[in-house]
């Protein structure tokens, strides 16, 4: 168990070091995610308002659908981060090096997924700030709401990273992987988008208690894919 975590930490550190020198997530994935948010503003007019007799200023449709748009932007951005997770191993025989390093395959999976989690947490922090800014989201702040929102993001991103890393490995070594990975990952992550949107909806506008069952479902999904990745990665790595 200790060796597994040590191997995972080494792979995670390596992938983050590559990101630190290449700055692909910072310079490409984050601007891409922000651009998606702006495009949502073009697609759904910011002037479109919800009829609400109780509110002094009628909220815009954009602000009310923020939870869904937020995770859609994270989901699309995650496709780039996931693709890059094994893309960095495609050249110069680095994958062979990784396999010959004697690391536990489950540790490699956990390390790769962990690096995607760290990168996506950064992306989601920028995207959330952008959504509040661009969509003029107004909420009543409380600690309970903040805790629910942060936990939802953590559980959803872990689920996206675990499932994404597994499917990225499944499509490794393919010329068509750029189109194959989204085809495989997006339907699989439909329940994550659903759960994350519902929990964030509760955190921003609804009753906080309504959000926790969705967080539990997200955590179960993440646990399932972490388990599936740990069990199957040895077979997948052999075939890469």
């Amino acid at each position: 168990m200790f060796e597994l975590l040590r191997d995972a930490r080494m792979v995670l550190g390596k992938d983050l070091l590559i990101e630190r020198s290449s700055r692909v997530v910072t310079a490409q994935v984050v601007p891409f995610a922000v651009m998606i948010l702006i495009l949502f503003g073009f697609g759904i007019s910011p002037d479109l308002r919800i009829l609400d007799s109780t509110a002094t200023v009628a909220p815009s449709v954009l602000s009310r659908v923020t939870p869904g748009l937020l995770f859609l932007a994270v989901l699309f951005a995650s496709l780039l981060a996931i693709g890059r997770s094994f893309g960095v191993e495609a050249n110069d025989g680095t994958l062979d090096g990784l396999r010959m390093a004697g690391l536990d395959p489950a540790g490699i999976f956990l390390g790769k997924a962990g690096a995607v989690v760290v990168q996506l947490l950064g992306v989601s922090a920028v995207v959330t700030s952008g959504a509040f800014l661009f969509f003029s989201v107004r909420i009543e702040w409380s600690v309970a709401r903040a805790v629910l929102g942060v936990t939802t993001a953590g559980a959803a991103i872990t689920a996206i990273a675990a499932a994404g890393t597994l499917y990225s490995a499944l499509a490794a070594g393919q010329r068509e992987r750029e189109s194959l990975v989204p085809l495989l990952v997006i339907p699989v992550l439909a329940p994550v988008l659903l759960g994350a949107s519902q929990a964030t909806e509760a955190a921003l506008f609804g009753a906080v208690a309504d959000g926790w069952p969705w967080v539990a479902a997200l955590a179960a999904f993440a646990a399932l894919y972490v388990g599936a990745g740990i069990l199957s990665f040895e077979t997948l790595l052999e075939d890469m």
């Binding site: 499509a171 393919q174 194959l180 085809l183 495989l184 075939d239």
Partner: peptide, 12 residues
């Protein structure tokens, strides 16, 4: 459909 796409992959 994704499963069938994997079955068409040009691999061993």
């Amino acid at each position: 459909l994704g499963y069938l796409a994997v079955r068409r992959m040009d691999l061993d």
